[in-house]
Design a protein around this nucleic acid. Structure first.
Lengths: 136, 136
DNA sequence: TCGTTGTTTATAATTATTCTAAAGAAGATT
DNA sequence: AATCTTCTTTAGAATAATTATAAACAACGA
């Protein structure tokens, strides 16, 4: 069970005041056992369902972006009409079931080490992500 | 130099009649030495520049999607406001310079072989793509 | 050439995301 | 607790990529 104090800490670290709405968002994002893949719209609907209170879409966007910037959320690179985020911010990769539009985690051990043997002067590697598309 | 006949063949294979507009699109897409990363909007503007003729945005979308479906174009999984495509449909990976919003090819040799040691019942792997994000 | 079917186009519709500005809440200071 | 400042929430408007529409037009086959 994640405590409200942790949510407040996460919010403060992200330069956000802990408001009722943002705590509700945290409740849905972080109070769970398994990693959570979502779109803003998923999250928006879940907040209503799980907390019984509505938070405006603009607030959901703002808060998610602040968390992403701070590193509490990870953006998953997929071409989809909507942007996907992940509460698992550790280095890991994804399956994407194209038909069902569903993301599945790949543990780091499930994918061998990836060596990038090319570099661009003046640039450094920020992240390496593997996307495995699945079909039937 | 790619010939008009090849364009027509590509179009026919994609279930598209070879029209003037579509040939112009092919001219910009396929008549080049190096791989070409683009957004629909890039392409739309290049057609005007290179052929001197305007093709409607709707036609560009339709044609690109047909080529993508047929496998003559590849979609590059990046979260961006626009969708990126690639004329290089062989298995390969990308750098993405986040600051400049620019894609750079990685040859397959630049990235070691990637072994996916997990499988999902009833699903098979369609593609494996690595995206390496670059920062300064 | 004619008839059928597919295509192009401008424009409207849709949809995700961002912006705006007014009303409200948090935090600091007394 | 009252007050002031600063940040936040919200509904709704604005933006921007993409998709749909339907009327004029072009390709194809007979």
């Amino acid at each position: 069970m994640t405590s409200k104090q942790e949510f407040i800490e996460k919010l403060r670290n992200s330069n956000l005041r802990p408001t009722k709405q943002r705590i509700n968002i945290c409740e849905v994002l972080f109070n769970r056992d398994k990693t959570f893949h979502f779109t803003i719209n998923d999250l928006f609907n879940l907040i209503k369902d799980k907390t019984g209170e509505k938070v405006s879409l603009a607030t959901v966007y703002n808060t998610v972006h602040a968390f992403h910037k701070k590193g509490y959320l990870k953006e998953i690179p997929i071409n989809s009409n909507q942007t996907y985020f992940d509460t698992n911010v550790t280095d890991h990769h994804h399956f994407f079931d194209v038909k069902e539009e569903k993301l599945i985690d790949l543990k780091n051990e499930d994918v061998g080490p990836i060596e990038i043997q090319k570099s661009i002067p003046g640039k450094k590697i920020k992240s390496v992500e593997v996307l495995v598309k699945l079909e039937d």
